[in-house]
Design a protein around this nucleic acid. Sequence first.
DNA 1: ACCTGAACACCGTTCAAGT
DNA 2: ACCTGAACACCGTTCAAGT
Lengths: 197, 197
Amino acid sequence: MSRFDISIDDILMAMGRPALIDREAILEAGLAIADEQGLESVTMQAVAERLGVTPMALYRHVANKSTLLDGLVELLLAEFLPPPAGLPWPERLAGVAGAIRESAHRHPAVFPLLLQRPATTRAAREMRASIFRALEEAGVSPERAARTERLISTAILGFATSEVAGRFSRCSRRELDLDFDLLQDLLRGFIDDQVRR
Amino acid sequence: MSRFDISIDDILMAMGRPALIDREAILEAGLAIADEQGLESVTMQAVAERLGVTPMALYRHVANKSTLLDGLVELLLAEFLPPPAGLPWPERLAGVAGAIRESAHRHPAVFPLLLQRPATTRAAREMRASIFRALEEAGVSPERAARTERLISTAILGFATSEVAGRFSRCSRRELDLDFDLLQDLLRGFIDDQVRR
DNA sequence: ACCTGAACACCGTTCAAGT
DNA sequence: ACCTGAACACCGTTCAAGT
C-alpha cells in the first residue's frame, strides 16, 4: 500500500543485477529493424521482442516512440565522422559528402528523417563545423559561410535521400554515381563563386 | 444467400442515387487533414469522419492507406503548373522553382513525401518536361539534360523539404528567402557550366 | 453499386503490481 | 530500480450483410 512496501533489500538486489536493457540497446535494436524491414516495422513491440523484453519495459528508457525515432537519427549522425584534418579542404569536403552518402545506403529507411529534424544535436553540429572549417580554408568569408553550408548540406542530403528513398528508382547505380560526381563539381564551383565575391 | 438476393431494382436504386464519396473527395479530405493537423492525423477514421462516412466505406475507392498517401503526393504534383511558355527560360525556371516552394509552404506535412516516391506520375513527368525544355533552350545538350534536371529538381525539393519539415527551424523566413535566391543563382551557374562544355 | 456492423490483429501508452 | 500484467483507446483491414 505505502511506498515502503518496497524493502531496501529489494531495491539493492534490483540495483545489483544489471538492467536487461538501456537506451543504447533500444536504439540499436530499432536501427537494426529499420535497416532490415523498413521504418514502419519499427514498433515498440518489435523493438522489445528483439531485446527479449516486454514493450512496456522500453518506457523507462525512452520517453515515447517519437523520441525513439529521434534517437535513430542521432545514431546516423554519429556515423558522419569528421574527415582527417590533415587533408586539403576539397578532399575533406569530398570525404564528408561520401560518408553521408554511404550512411544513406546503410540506413535507407531512417536516412530521410535527417531532412526533417532540426540539426541541433551534437553530432549534427560537429558535421556542420567540419564543413565550416573547410569553407573557411577555401576562403569563404564568415558572413557567407552559414548560408553556403546550409545549401551544400541540403543538396547532399536531398540527393542521398532521393537515391535511397526510391525517387531515382529507374536509374542504375552507375548513373547515380555519375550524378553524385556532378553534384560535387557543382558544389565545388559554387564555393569558388562564393570566394570570388 | 445466393448473389441473386440483390434485386435489380435494388441495384438500380443504388445506382440512381449518387455515391456519397469518391476517390477525389477522399484525397481532398486527406490533404486537408494533413495540412491542418499533420500527416499522422491522416487516419482512415479521420478521413471518413470528415466525409460523414464510416472508415470501411473508403476501401471501395482507395486500395489502402498507402495508396491514399500516394494520392496526396499526386495532388501536390498537380499544383506544379507549367509556367507560361512565352517567357525566356531563366524566368520559366524561376517560376517552376517558386511554384514548388509555394506548394511546400501550403502542404508542409505531405511535401517531404515527394522526395521518397519515384517521379513517374503524369504530373511529375510534366514538371520534368518543363525543366527539360528550359534546359534545351538554355543550350544544354540532350545527353546532359537528364542528369542536369535530376540535380536541379533534387536541390529544389531538398531545400523546400528542409525548410518546411523543420531542419531550418532556427532560421528566419527572411534568411530562408535569401537562401532560396542563392540556390537559384547556384543552379543558374550550374546550367551555364553545362552549356559551356 | 455503395455503404455499414461486427470482428480481428495490431498499435502506443498508462498504471498498479511484482521482485 | 527495473520489469511485467492488465487494460485502454485507437489503428488498418476484411468480410458478410444490408439497401
